[in-house]
């Protein structure tokens, strides 16, 4: 029990911080309630999915700078194909887009393993490639999303007003994809290559293959994130939002060590909601949204700087 508590102290702390922030929100704006929670959850959804994807590669000792660009590709592909599609067709389109995400991520991973160019350079180059692909598919925001898809993340459930659908959606897809992996040997392998690739190799882990899987999973969550952008706005967005920096910051704030091996998925997700809530509170305090963006950006950069200092300490000690 105590050990569990120690291992998850950071995540618990984040949960407490988030609860305190939500309470503060209620104090700032007594009217804050179901609809506020819903809009918070919907705004946070793409960030949270990107963060889960980023957390997986960072746990496995890598980083994927192309995550926002992959989200854009998924978003526009989904929106363009769904324009005029029936509900049934849309289901296949969603599956296709998820497959596309896996494929994009696997391409990133494969290029890293085969070319031996460092991950940060490969994914920087692929950031431009995926951006270009998104622009080729759709030059300006457009396309459409079928209603049932939009309904997945909007509103709440009858009788459970306080539970936004977006949160349920996030919890479901993350649990469905990540938990079986975490429980299986693949999960151990992902942590192992992030923690100590040499020891992993000596323990019989296929390091290259595991790395490619990590990037493919990141691509899958990027595709989910891209679809959630389309779910939220009803259209495809070819120009990616600030998901890269936000996801790196949330991963660090969520207790995942840059360099790999340490941390989990829940922490980074809580970190996303914490950062979003800060932003919402600033807006509720009628702070200019651009000032709120500065505050948020500064928090993110400060978090990353703090994380880098910790990582450097860890390497030395």
């Amino acid at each position: 029990m105590r050990r569990w508590f120690d291992a998850n102290a950071w995540t618990l702390g984040l949960a407490v911080l988030l609860a305190a922030l939500l309470l503060a929100t209620k104090l700032i704006q007594p009217g804050f309630g179901v609809s506020g929670l819903d809009s918070l959850a919907r705004a946070a959804l793409p960030f949270a999915l990107a963060t889960v994807g980023m957390a997986i590669v960072v746990l496995a000792g890598g980083i994927d700078l192309s995550i926002a660009a992959m989200m854009a590709v998924a978003s526009v592909t989904g929106a363009v194909l769904m324009d005029g599609a029936s509900d049934g067709q849309a289901a296949f389109i969603v599956l296709g887009v998820l497959g596309l995400g896996l494929l994009m991520g696997a391409v990133n991973g494969l290029l890293i393993v085969v070319s031996r160019v460092p991950d940060i350079v490969v994914t920087l180059a692929m950031l431009f490639v995926w951006q270009g692909v998104a622009l080729l598919i759709l030059n300006a925001p457009g396309g459409a999303a079928v209603p049932w898809l939009r309904a997945l993340s909007t509103g709440s459930f009858p009788g459970l007003d306080w539970l936004p659908r977006a949160v349920v959606f996030l919890a479901l897809v993350t649990a469905l994809i990540w938990l079986p992996i975490r429980r299986a040997k693949l999960g151990l392998r992902l942590y192992a290559i992030g923690s100590d690739p040499l020891a992993a190799f000596r323990s019989g882990v296929p390091v290259g293959q595991t790395r490619i899987i990590a990037y493919a999973l990141c691509g899958l969550f990027a595709a989910l994130g891209g679809l959630s952008v389309t779910m939220g706005t009803g259209i495809g967005e070819p120009i990616p939002g600030p998901y890269l920096l936000a996801s790196v910051a949330a991963v660090v704030l969520g207790g995942v060590v840059l360099g790999g091996g340490r941390g989990g998925i829940l922490g980074p997700v809580l970190a996303v909601f914490t950062l979003r809530t800060v932003r919402m509170d600033l807006t509720l305090l009628s702070v200019d949204p651009n000032v709120a963006a500065i505050v948020e950006g500064t928090i993110m950069v400060a978090v990353v700087m703090f994380g880098a200092v910790l990582a450097a300490r860890g390497r030395k000690g």
């Binding site: 151990l188 942590y191 192992a192 992030g194 923690s195 100590d196 020891a199 000596r202 323990s203 091996g261």
Partner: peptide, 10 residues
């Protein structure tokens, strides 16, 4: 091996 081949974070 001389350096234990165990994964530190598991």
């Amino acid at each position: 091996y001389q350096e234990p081949s165990l994964i530190p974070d598991l």
